Simulated scan of single mutants.
Amino acid sequence: MLKIHGIPRSRAFRCIWAAEEAGLPYEVIPIGFQPGFKLERAVEINPNNKIPALEDGSLVLFESLAINLHIAGKAGAPLMPTGDDASRVMQWTLWAATEAEPHVMRWSYNAYLKPEADRVASEAAAGKEALDLRLAVLEKELAQRPYLLGSGFTVADLNLASVLYGSWLNGYDYAPFPKVKAWLEACMTRPAALKARKQREG
Rank of each mutant, 00 (worst) to 15 (best):
Met1Leu: 12
His5Lys: 12
Gly6Met: 03
Ser10Glu: 08
Phe13Cys: 12
Arg14Ala: 08
Cys15Trp: 04
Cys15Thr: 15
Ala19Arg: 01
Glu20His: 00
Glu21Phe: 02
Glu21Cys: 01
Ala22Gln: 08
Ala22Arg: 08
Ala22Pro: 00
Leu24Ser: 01
Tyr26Val: 11
Tyr26Asn: 11
Glu27Lys: 14
Val28His: 00
Ile29Pro: 06
Gly32Phe: 02
Phe33Ala: 06
Pro35Thr: 07
Gly36Gln: 12
Lys38Cys: 09
Leu39Tyr: 09
Leu39Arg: 03
Ala42Thr: 13
Ala42Gln: 14
Ala42Ile: 12
Val43Gln: 13
Val43Asp: 11
Asn48His: 15
Ala53His: 04
Ala53Cys: 08
Leu54Asn: 04
Glu55Met: 06
Glu55Cys: 06
Asp56Arg: 00
Asp56Asn: 03
Leu59His: 08
Leu61Trp: 04
Glu63Thr: 06
Ile67Leu: 02
Ile67His: 03
His70Leu: 08
Ile71Arg: 01
Ile71Ser: 00
Gly73Ala: 14
Gly73His: 02
Gly73Ser: 12
Lys74Ala: 05
Pro78Leu: 06
Met80Asp: 07
Gly83Ile: 09
Asp84Gly: 13
Met90Asp: 13
Trp92Gln: 02
Thr93Met: 13
Leu94Val: 14
Leu94Arg: 10
Thr98Glu: 13
Glu99His: 05
Glu99Tyr: 00
Glu101Asn: 08
His103Gly: 02
Val104His: 04
Arg106Gly: 09
Trp107Ser: 03
Tyr109Ala: 07
Ala111Thr: 13
Lys114Ile: 01
Pro115Lys: 08
Ala117Tyr: 00
Arg119Lys: 07
Ser122Asn: 14
Ser122Asp: 15
Glu123Asp: 08
Ala124His: 05
Ala126Ile: 07
Ala126Leu: 12
Gly127Ala: 03
Gly127Leu: 00
Gly127Lys: 03
Glu129Val: 10
Ala130Thr: 08
Arg134Ile: 02
Arg134Tyr: 05
Arg134Leu: 00
Arg134Thr: 02
Arg134Lys: 15
Ala136Asp: 15
Ala136Cys: 05
Glu139Tyr: 01
Lys140His: 14
Glu141Val: 11
Leu142Val: 01
Gln144Pro: 00
Leu148Trp: 02
Gly152Asn: 15
Phe153Ile: 12
Phe153Asp: 05
Phe153Gln: 06
Thr154Arg: 10
Leu158Phe: 02
Leu160Met: 11
Ser162Trp: 01
Val163Lys: 02
Leu164Val: 04
Tyr165Asn: 15
Gly166Phe: 00
Asn170Glu: 13
Gly171Lys: 00
Tyr172His: 03
Pro176Gly: 11
Phe177Glu: 13
Pro178Glu: 12
Lys179Glu: 10
Lys179Met: 11
Thr189Ile: 07
Thr189Ala: 13
Pro191His: 05
Ala192Leu: 02
Ala192Pro: 04
Ala192Gln: 10
Ala192Val: 10
Lys195Trp: 03
Lys195Val: 04
Lys195Asp: 09
Ala196Thr: 06
Lys198Phe: 06
Lys198Ser: 15
Gln199Tyr: 08
Arg200Ile: 12
Glu201Trp: 01
Gly202Tyr: 07
